[in-house]
Structure formats: structure tokens, C-alpha cells
Design a binder for these strands. Structure first.
Length: 435
DNA sequence: TGCTACTTGTG
DNA sequence: ACAAGTAGC
């Protein structure tokens, strides 16, 4: 089930696709499976419309591969020639293997194995075939994908142009203003050096193969871009790595990859969870990120690591709770990347960050938003504070708070936990796992 | 793709 | 003091 932000995106995406198909003389066929199995619904469609062959792109979670297997057997038996293809990854998960034939469990060797002989596929363009439009189907309006009362999607609409054209424009914008310096600056949420392609990738509106080959084109003959370009492609490969983990896992979004974490003493604290979700923790870099997410459906990667670390370690709330919130609010929520990355931060994942690596939300802000531009943008009540007060505003002298028109504890919350204490509590809990 | 406490060396 | 290095979480 898609989250709210992705439902909004899907609505715009289908409208864009529909328009493209109409320009070719066709019509987009829309059908949902509300109370029957995917295989049954597809079989009905095939019979009604006299369909000869069915093609689709593979998916990789257990629940999805179960559906796809059943579709394949049902359609095949009924003579509708089903076939599935690789349409979203650089390589299929079973194609990248260690010398002993097992899937990689560590990213760097995975990358070293994938990179050398990878040749991106090139699109063939629009197929030469006829389109049909003389059929009835469901109406997109009836799907009610766009949020109503209240409509919270204004910020999403300002931030994004869903669809293939938006994806291409996004890639070109990244080449123009983000690729140069990517390696150094991709950790800076105040700078335009990340690609922001993730929602387009998650909806299949641009192909990783196209991104790969366009990036290679960009850096060929431009040696000053070479290390930036390869750093970017390496990040793309994290997506394949996450899918490789998803493919091996029974359910990556509910089960700890490392079952040693099954006994972890997670806290239940609705007050703290709500403060985190609303961007009211009292730690500016955390709140800036959570508000960017709520407003735009997206958050800078470095800040995702900071807010995830804060939820898991400072608040000791189960990573699955954070995964669910991201699933509902991110326009790029991805079946593989989202749970794999949450488990990476929690320390329960493959090749994960050790649990005891606890981000200090004060120094992370100072390091990656050094001028406070990102904090001032998303936490405007703090915008008049001097730079040195932006990362730990509770230490601002009372008279400075008054001058700047912000009273900590009134206009902006005091921190909901004390960093030093919360850090120690998390380390103690981690220690309890070992015994 | 950490942080902290503690050390040693310098002034 | 304070930088620089490092062990252990």
C-alpha cells in the first residue's frame, strides 16, 4: 500500500503518462485490484480485451514475487504469454555474486564486483506499434489519490514536477549545478549538490541505465568531473545493494536483518514520537529535516541519517516506527532503500553502522550546515538568532532570545531529551543486548 | 558515512 | 589551556 505522499505523486505521474499516450493516439488503461487477486484481475482483462501477450517489470520483495509468480502461472495456463523483464535495477540481484556464489553482505565488495563489467542498456525509444483508445476503464478521479480535506499537498506541488519530463529536467539540473563538487558537497543540505532523482527512480520515471550512461558521457573528456561522477554512480549502486538485501530477506521492513536485535528494549513514547514527526524535538537540525520532509515529501540524505539516529538512539524508538513514517511521508519511499537504510542506522542491517555510532545532533548541524542556512529555512522561528546559537538554541542568553524575538520553551521547544543522557541510555541498552 | 574521554605534547 | 592522537563504546 502506497503512503500518502506517493499517492499524490502517482496521481500526477499517471496524468503525465496519460497525456503522453494520448498524444500517440492511445489511451491509458487503468484497473485496480481492490478485493481480488492480481492474477484474477489480469486474467479478466486479458479475456475481455483478447490480449495475446503480457509484459511487466520484475519486483523483488517476497510479497511481490509471490504475486508475480502466480500471475505468470495463471496467465501462462490461459495462453496469454506472460513474460517479466529487468526494468529497474542495474543488475538483477542474482547476477551479482561472490566467488563462492553467495550474494554480497557488504557494500564495498558488492560495488567492486558490479562496477567493472557493467554496461548500461540503451532505450530503444517509442515502439513502432499501434495504440488503442476504444475501451472503457476506471477513471483516475475515482481513485482519489490526491489528498482532500485537508489538502496538505501544496508544498509537494511547489517542489516537484512528477513524470518523465520532470525526471529529465531534474537530471539535467543536477548535471548543471550539482555534479561538480558532488563528492565533497553531497553531505551539505544547504547546497544543491544532490540529484533529487530518488522519487523519479522509485516510480520508474527515469532509468538507472540512462542515469549511468548520461553520467559517463558527462565525465568523459572532463577529468575534473571524474571523481564526482563515480562518487555519484557509487551512490546509485546502494539502491541495487538494498534490492539485493530485499531479495534475500523474508520481510526487510519488519524483520531485523541481524536477529541479535530481536531482544532490543525499544521504548514506546507517543509524546516523543509526535515531537519527532512534527519537527518539535528542540534540536534544530532534526526539526529542520522533519519539517522539510513534511512540506516537500523529501529530505536530504545526510539529514535522514541524523533524524533516524535521533529517533532510534536518543529516543530509543523502534526503527520500524520511523520506517513507517518515512513510508507515508516520502515521495521517494522505496521498498528496498527505506527499510535497508533504517536498518543501516539502527545497526541491525547488513554492513550497518555500529549501534554505538551515535550522531551528536548539535555537532552534526555545525558540521554540515555550517552557516545555518538549512536550519533558518526550515525552522524560521530561529532565523534571527546569531549563527553560533543556532545549533543549541537553549544555551542562548535570555536577553539575546528577546532581541531575536524567540523565547526557547515558548516559541521553539526546549530539547525533549538531553543529548548526553540519551546517548548514555542508548549505549546501556545496547550493552544489555549482549548479555 | 562518530563521539567521548582520556592520553601526551606543547606553551 | 589546547591541539592531536587514540581506545572503547
Amino acid at each position: 500500500m502506497l503512503g500518502g505522499a506517493k499517492r499524490w505523486w502517482l496521481d500526477k505521474s499517471l496524468r503525465a503518462l496519460s497525456e503522453k499516450i494520448e498524444n500517440l493516439g492511445g489511451k491509458l488503461f487503468l484497473k485496480r485490484n481492490t478485493d481480488r487477486s492480481t492474477a484474477d484481475v489480469l486474467l479478466d482483462v486479458c479475456r475481455t480485451h483478447n490480449v495475446k501477450s503480457v509484459f511487466w517489470n520484475r519486483r523483488y520483495s517476497t510479497s511481490e514475487t509471490d504475486i508475480d509468480k502466480s500471475v505468470k502461472s495463471v496467465l501462462s495456463e490461459a495462453g496469454h504469454s506472460p513474460s517479466s523483464f529487468s526494468g529497474s535495477l542495474l543488475k538483477e540481484p542474482w547476477e551479482v555474486k561472490t566467488n563462492s556464489g553467495n550474494p554480497y553482505k557488504v557494500f564495498t565488495p558488492f560495488w567492486n564486483a558490479l562496477k567493472p563489467d557493467f554496461a548500461p542498456k540503451h532505450p530503444d525509444g517509442i515502439p513502432d506499434c499501434s495504440f488503442f483508445s476504444d475501451f472503457d476503464c476506471e477513471d483516475l478521479e475515482d481513485w482519489a489519490l490526491h489528498p482532500s480535506k485537508p489538502d496538505w499537498s501544496d508544498g509537494l506541488g511547489d517542489a516537484w514536477i512528477p513524470g518523465e519530463d520532470g525526471a529529465k529536467a531534474c537530471l539535467e539540473a543536477f548535471f548543471d549545478e550539482g555534479l561538480k563538487g558532488y563528492k565533497e558537497k553531497r553531505d551539505r543540505p544547504d547546497l544543491p549538490n544532490t540529484s533529487r532523482l530518488s522519487p523519479y527512480l522509485s516510480f520508474g520515471e527515469i532509468s538507472v541505465h540512462e542515469i549511468w550512461s548520461r553520467t559517463l558521457q558527462k565525465i568523459s573528456g572532463a577529468s575534473e568531473l571524474e571523481s564526482d561522477g563515480w562518487a555519484f554512480l557509487r551512490e546509485l549502486a546502494w539502491r541495487d545493494f538494498s534490492y539485493s538485501l530485499l531479495f534475500q530477506s523474508k520481510d526487510l521492513s519488519t524483520e531485523n536483518w541481524n536477529d541479535k536485535f530481536d531482544g532490543f528494549p525499544w521504548e514506546k513514547n507517543e509524546t516523543c514520537l509526535t515531537a519527532w514527526q512534527k519537527g518539535q524535538t528542540g534540536y534544530p537540525i532534526v526539526d529542520a529535516g522533519m519539517r522539510e520532509l513534511w512540506t516537500t515529501g523529501w529530505m536530504h540524505n545526510r539529514v535522514r541519517m541524523i533524524v533516524a539516529s535521533f529517533l532510534i538512539k536518543h529516543l530509543m524508538i523502534d526503527w520500524r516506527t520511523g520506517e513507517e513514517w518515512f513510508w507515508d511521508t516520502l515521495v521517494d519511499a522505496d521498498t528496498a532503500n527505506n527499510p535497508a537504510s533504517w536498518q543501516w542506522v539502527a545497526g541491525s542491517g547488513a554492513d550497518a553502522s555500529p549501534y554505538f555510532r551515535i550522531f551528536n545532533p548539535i555537532t552534526q548541524g555545525e558540521k554540515f550546515d555550517p552557516d545555518g542556512v538549512y536550519i533558518r529555512k526550515w525552522v524560521p522561528e530561529l532565523s534571527k538568532l546569531p549563527r553560533k546559537c543556532l545549533f543549541a538554541p537553549w544555551d542562548t542568553p535570555r536577553d539575546v532570545q528577546k532581541e531575536c524575538g524567540v523565547l526557547i520553551g515558548h516559541d521553539y521547544p526546549k530539547p525533549i531529551v538531553i543529548h548526553k543522557q540519551a546517548r548514555q541510555r542508548a549505549l546501556d541498552a545496547y550493552e544489555s543486548l549482549k548479555t
